[in-house]
Simulated assay, not measured.
Amino acid sequence: MKKFAQIINSKIHWIFEADGKPEFAPDIVIIDITDKPEVQEGWGYNNETGEFTAPVIPEPTPIETPPTVEEMQAQTLLNTEYLVSRSELLGGM
């Protein structure tokens, strides 16, 4: 049994096994990948060189941890004290 890959837009769309290369419409690209067991769906394919490339998966963006309840309470207290002091300063003029 041989292993084949269907190529769409320079990417492996589908990998399947068959006894021989099936005949599809002329615009459907089928490549024999029997000797390339590492190749997987989603990999890129260069039609000019016949080379396959694994997709580059970007590093995930770190998610900032939300503040704790205590941190939010402390920030609220600071904001309140700031506003009270501003009010006292402006009220004294």
Rank of each mutant, 00 (worst) to 15 (best):
A5W: 03
S85N: 13
A5F: 01
P55T: 04
I30F: 02
N79G: 12
V39F: 00
D35Q: 08
I15K: 00
V69T: 12
N47V: 10
N79E: 12
G20N: 15
P37R: 03
E70Y: 04
L89E: 15
Y45G: 00
Y45Q: 06
F52T: 01
Q75T: 10
E38I: 03
V69W: 10
A54P: 02
V56P: 01
F24H: 10
P37C: 01
L83A: 14
E17V: 02
E41V: 08
A74L: 09
N46V: 03
T65M: 10
P26F: 04
I15H: 00
E81C: 14
Y82W: 12
I8N: 11
T68E: 09
V84R: 13
I63R: 08
M93L: 15
T34W: 06
K21S: 03
K36N: 10
E51P: 07
G20D: 14
S10C: 06
T49S: 09
Q6Y: 07
T53V: 08
I28C: 05
H13M: 08
K11R: 15
A18E: 11
G44Q: 07
F52D: 00
K3S: 09
P58H: 07
I28P: 04
Q40T: 06
L90K: 11
P22Y: 00
D35Y: 02
N46P: 06
K36R: 08
E41N: 06
E48A: 04
I33L: 05
S85A: 13
V56R: 08
K21M: 11
P37I: 03
V29G: 01
E70K: 13
K2M: 11
K36H: 10
A18W: 06
T65K: 15
I33S: 02
E59L: 13
Q6M: 13
G50F: 02
F16Y: 03
V69L: 12
P67F: 01
P22C: 03
I30K: 07
P67A: 01
G92E: 15
W14I: 06
A18R: 08
I63W: 01
L90T: 09
I7M: 04
A54Q: 14
F4L: 06
E23W: 05
E81K: 15
I7S: 04
N46K: 03
E81A: 15
